[in-house]
Amino acid sequence: MSFIEVTGLRKIYRLGQEKVYALKNINLKIERGEICCILGTSGSGKSTLLNMLAGLEKPTRGDIIINGVNIAKLSERKLARFRQENTGFVFQSYNLIPQLSSLENVGMPLMFKGWSRRKRDREAKKMLAAVGLKSRMKHRPNQMSGGQQQRVGIARAFVAKPNVVFADEPTGNLDTKTTADVMELMVKMCREHNLTLILVTHDLDIAKYADRIVHLIDGDIHSDELNKAVYDPFTEKDGDKSRQPAS
């Protein structure tokens, strides 16, 4: 069984009398450790798919099984618990809490898990060091650049040692140079911990970091192919052919 299995997924929005098919019929399998890019234009349903994979939205029909759990059928409380234990999030607009220092922002997921302040500060410090922000621990988000803020966001996504990290246009607000830094950081952290990364973007340059690119058009999978030339910033070597997509 694959780490993530999506079968017959459909999402219909109602806009007044009209039905809008955001997702028509999605079937997808993603393996543990895979870096999967969901590519699509605005309105292709890529964000809807991500939201449903993360359990933020209930599908109209279909199943989403992550790590053996059908999250489409979980209660609100169990979903929260599931997110605490399995998922990390990286947002386009960082979504850090402005009143909190970067240390506190990174520690937040651990706080929701009920960790003591001492324990979560220790973990958060480690993560901040790992993203190269050791000297910015006491800074507030508005005292940092966009790239730094997004690195805090990445630290926050990885701090609870999740199984899967969702990234929604993580570099949408960043310039080219910073985009490369941030993408490399994310890929590196995923590889180190053998995490699954689901990357949603409309940007082909970003997609090149992924092992596999799922192309969505109008709520359907248009193409699902291995990235023949995975850009691996660590080996500087193209394409690892041993990694195969599940479907």
Binding site: R83, I97, P109, R156
Partner: peptide, 16 residues
Amino acid sequence: TREIGIMKVLGCFISN
């Protein structure tokens, strides 16, 4: 609103 949303996404129980 945004803060509450972030908390939810990061796994905060709604009871909290």
